[in-house]
Design a protein around this nucleic acid. Structure first.
Lengths: 100, 100
DNA sequence: TTCCATGATATCGGAATTCGATATCGTATG
DNA sequence: CATACGATATCGAATTCCGATATCATGGAA
């Protein structure tokens, strides 16, 4: 895989944790949000990622019906928010190292 | 894999590109440098990563003997520096989105 | 009630990655 | 020449990425 893609996939996961800790997000919304930020992620990558994050306890989901469609909404757990904070700390260090 | 690890692996790759574009780096030096920044990467991950980056044209290597040991030194190619610049742009956006 | 269109979510399978553990290899020294 | 040293290379099982496709629940039409 191209290195830029590998790097971006990590950034995408930070976005997921971020949005899921600010409010509820579902798969399609997340894909649109990421697209706005210039990231592409296919369903075949996003959904297994969400499942894995929930299985590991970073996210918690519940289903709801919106516009006649069943949607699974995710929000960050305490463990998820902690992981996000850890990522934020490292982003600050990364910025100092490679941007300034 | 834990999400923090997945995220950090991307950051590690940014570091590799960064250091290889500032000067020459070899495997052991890179491992020490990353350890200073609080990242752990084992040889079984680092070396295949370096090989892959070189195979894809982001890095270019040459071997040298230092203290009686054969070391392979890497530096970023033009393609590698471009990828780094792309990563930097996205890091700036990430900071705006999740840090402020 | 039953069927259908819609679109969100779930799954599939091949290629590639991650990792610790271990092997390999080149050099300098005795 | 033989050996110790340590940097680099490789191994194999588990996991991830991805596009393509399947599945599934819902609301409305007939």
């Amino acid at each position: 895989m191209a290195i830029i893609r590998e790097i971006f996939l990590g950034f995408i996961k930070v976005h997921i944790l971020h949005h899921a800790s600010e409010g509820e997000v579902c798969g399609v919304e997340m894909m649109e949000e990421l697209k706005r930020h210039g990231y592409a992620i296919s369903p075949g990558t996003l959904y297994p990622t969400l499942h894995s994050l929930e299985r590991q306890g970073y996210l918690q989901s519940s289903t709801r019906v919106v516009a006649g469609k069943r949607r699974r909404y995710y929000r960050a757990t305490e463990k998820g928010r902690k992981a996000l904070e850890e990522a934020r700390t490292k982003i600050r260090e990364l910025v100092e190292e490679v941007l300034e």
